[in-house]
Design a protein around this nucleic acid. Sequence first.
DNA 1: TTGAAAGCGCTAACAT
DNA 2: ATGTTAGCGCTTTCAA
Lengths: 352, 352
Amino acid sequence: MSRETEAPAAMPTLEDVARAAGVSRATVSRVINGIRNVDPAIQDAVRDAVAATGYTPNRAARALVTRRAETIALVVSGAGDASEAEQNAFAAGVFADPFFGRVAAGVVGYLRPRSMHPVLMFAETPDARDQVVNYLRQGSADGALIVSTHAEDPLPAMIAAAGLPAVLFARPAGLVPISYVDLAHQDGAKLAAAHLLDRGCRNLVTIAGPRDVAAGHERLEGFQDAMARRGFPYIPVAEGSFTLRSGEEAMARLLAEHPDLDGVFAANDLMAQGACLVLREHGKRVPEDVAVVGFDDSSVARSSRPHLTTVRQPVEEMAAEMARLLQERIEQPGLPVTSVIFEPELVVRESA
Amino acid sequence: MSRETEAPAAMPTLEDVARAAGVSRATVSRVINGIRNVDPAIQDAVRDAVAATGYTPNRAARALVTRRAETIALVVSGAGDASEAEQNAFAAGVFADPFFGRVAAGVVGYLRPRSMHPVLMFAETPDARDQVVNYLRQGSADGALIVSTHAEDPLPAMIAAAGLPAVLFARPAGLVPISYVDLAHQDGAKLAAAHLLDRGCRNLVTIAGPRDVAAGHERLEGFQDAMARRGFPYIPVAEGSFTLRSGEEAMARLLAEHPDLDGVFAANDLMAQGACLVLREHGKRVPEDVAVVGFDDSSVARSSRPHLTTVRQPVEEMAAEMARLLQERIEQPGLPVTSVIFEPELVVRESA
DNA sequence: TTGAAAGCGCTAACAT
DNA sequence: ATGTTAGCGCTTTCAA
């Protein structure tokens, strides 16, 4: 009738290890947390005891006293006020773009060696946003890595106002005092312009991203500016929404109005892929008749035919840097808001 | 010189609420946890006090005493022994298939209304697998939702051996006593076969998934079986790996050997899309010259041209069901291992 | 119906 | 260098 036998797996505690090693809880704690000033012989004894008992620290107990959850939130945030069904579509749609998978990979790549793992949250509605803020406020996570899909996203401002540690992917709209990593989008667009011009294109058009997304806006501006400097003051532009479909539609419009075009700069790879598809349908060869340059160097750049010449955005490294900055700010709350801008790189493949 | 003023945001505790409401901690706790036998007037007083103080329960403290983390792990698991760089590629690659995004969306869709959020973990190496087991053992998460990419994945067996609550997406290889949700893949393949045959195709071929993945295997078997029953004992098959590229290559091979083929069943949409691309390159019209049926009804089915006729796998619902089963098993540890099989559905669009 | 009190497992002063 | 002790914020008997 003993209760002990009923317990499925009573995890050993510090106390158990201490008893096994013949020392106090405090000493065991010191060894486990790597604090020096512990006799080497005792350290060994403790380590043996840990191994013998199969001890693993209880995260809740530790979090309670240290006031650190040792957890961070990875939140994908929209600007909407969606219904529940729409939220699911949002979540599924987010991953349809290879971009988010790269962010997740970069974040996990940084966190895992440190034995940390991100909590995945979607914040596409006011309720969901409140949930995120609360989650952080109550200390369930020590900070947030935020990827916004829209410029009007109110979450960054909410987080900043609450004084919670966070780092964004891409500069926030407005003057939100919050750290972020970003890419020098304009420089990337300039790389594309130079490449297209250098290979002899003279009738260029561009498929831009949504005007209200900073990345889309800046890539367009950078491209127009670079072209203007080389003597091309006007570039036909069609706006897409970073999806394959929108790239196809934009390309079709451009082709109808400018049948003699010989080069396309698309603001991301997915739209560039769409452009290639439509170009082929209209009997244009890529790159012989029309050269196409994408942006991002995402997985579709290599799965698309022909392989896309594109501007590389090192998303994984940028995401890892976000995690690093956040951790730094969690550990040293006094640290000022900062930003890290990455430089793009031209990757020449077959499409241009 | 008071310490209090230095604290950035001392969160209110139960004690604070109790004081504000003029009752004891225990009573506040009862109200918050919805336990009856509390005077309605006091309930109101407590609720007011909660609102006034802005109280939020501290998850670590609660977890410590209830022995529940109120957290579950969402783990994407491979079978490999990859280097760190390969792990990152694995993580990014996993998301390249729209499948995983749908799983995440389904899981979050179920969890979020319950104020829970999944911890994202990748387990592609022995170390990473140990990390997952440890994470669960130490109670950082109450259970795991596991999506394996390979049949030889040792993680399910490890989890089962440790007696930890878990639910898999897809039946595990071998005889691992662990719950799972799955699709009746064979039935889905039969739907595809019947549709292709009914529309008049007589020279069918199939692009199969990897032989060592149950889903790939079963879809092929189901297709072959259905064809045999209709008098077609031999169906040319080319094996792919569920990627767009592999679909293209398989289609090219099939086309070379069977130039007169008039119908293709691909084991997933990505490969079906690849098939369409290659077919078009070879001057075949889809569906006029060659009909193509995919599998999954993922986002590419609608982004691909022509829109894919496909067999729908309700991934989001299946993922939500995984979460439900897991929660049920966490709350009632005695529950037996179970399985839930979903029925596929034919979605007719343009490609067949 | 409510309150008092005993921990959950751990860290961090403080003592020694 | 090590041990003692006092909580962290919460839930949950046990009394009243």
